[in-house]
Design a binder for these strands. Structure first.
Lengths: 190, 190
DNA sequence: CTCCCTTGTCTAGCGCTGCTAGGATTCGGT
DNA sequence: ACCGAATCCTAGCAGCGCTAGACAAGGGAG
């Protein structure tokens, strides 16, 4: 029995290795550089091994994206918990979201550009997705004011997401970075 | 002399044909379906002909994106001009932007996801880009309130962009569509 | 009118991609 | 010591973006 357990343990380890390697490679050279051949070479196995863990390359990207959502959720909860009051928590979460997106470009791409087919359709979404959205919603709902708090959360999220993607594409003036997020927070707080 | 002119005319026509066909194919089946082979087949020429017009596939996508920016600029100016007062113009432009992005998903992808290397670095950006940003800025600046009007424009633009992309990815509740844009406009107007 | 030479286009092919079929090898269980 | 199953790799497919080199068409000069 314990042999099977050891094998499953090794298998799970390799599973994580694939995800970690894909993420490192993507962050270092961009997702275009993450080919199944290069990935296989890095983990020191042949290509087909990847397909015994994942149905395809998309699924590997999706796995990386899930990691990203989990980390984002943790980051957001951390800064919101440390903040002093709902408004400060909201502002801190907004700043953290932006920083996260800009600091992990490849990871952010996996989450929002590449893994578009991640089942975001509530309520059967993967746990990390709900967790990340919940982290945002928990902070945002407290400052939503009148109106649907979910609509407010979605608007706030979308605004931050837009800031991340446009900034990453070089389409916003870098020197206004700080000013933009402060302005957004101020206006959304009403 | 007139023979050269005819040839150049035919060449320009084929140039437009390539762009139009690429756009149609992308809008019908997504950009993944736009391969140089399929594109060549559609315009009834061989593959290398594409490369006598464009340096590569990216340049074709960029050409489609430029068309998109020109159309977006025209749309925005049209609805803003018809609106009654700065606040109404702002709201109308916001709604139009969102509608444009959702109605032309492939075009919007070309503009913001695929043609990332379009030189957006002012001031040497292509005319349609400056024109589109100017159309937004002209309307937004009038309701910016205190603070840098450019930062306000960038925030507004990013928020709308985020709403488009997240909605397209199925990550926002469709039934809140209307409510989100109204909420955003209300908050940004302060 | 004929020849030449430029111009324009196509066929064929390179190296790469994601993915998979089938054979070889290893290894636990009897 | 042997058998069967599980594991992994070699080799290859179709398709991708892109390009070299052959080929045909057609205007200009004698």
């Amino acid at each position: 029995m314990s042999i099977h357990q050891r094998r499953e343990r090794e298998r799970a380890e390799r599973h994580r290795l694939i995800i970690r390697t894909a993420r490192e490679l993507a962050e270092a050279e961009g997702w275009d550089a993450v080919t199944t051949r290069r990935l296989a070479e890095r983990i020191e196995y042949s290509q087909p091994v990847l397909y015994s863990h994942f149905a395809g390359k998309n699924e590997i990207v999706a796995a990386v994206a899930l990691e990203g959502f989990a980390e984002l959720a943790a980051d957001l909860r951390a800064v919101a918990d440390k903040a002093d009051g709902p408004a400060a928590a909201f502002a801190a979460a907004a700043r953290e979201y932006l920083a996260f997106g800009l600091a992990n470009p490849a990871l952010y791409d996996a989450m929002f550009t590449l893994a578009t087919d991640l089942p975001f359709g509530w309520p059967d979404a993967p746990e990390p997705l709900k967790e990340a959205f919940g982290a945002l919603a928990g902070t945002f709902a407290q400052v939503a004011g009148e109106g649907d708090p979910e609509a407010f959360t979605e608007v706030g999220w979308a605004s931050l997401h837009g800031l991340v993607t446009l900034a990453r594409g070089g389409r916003l003036r870098p020197e206004l970075e700080q000013e933009r997020v402060e302005l957004l927070v101020r206006r959304l707080l009403g």
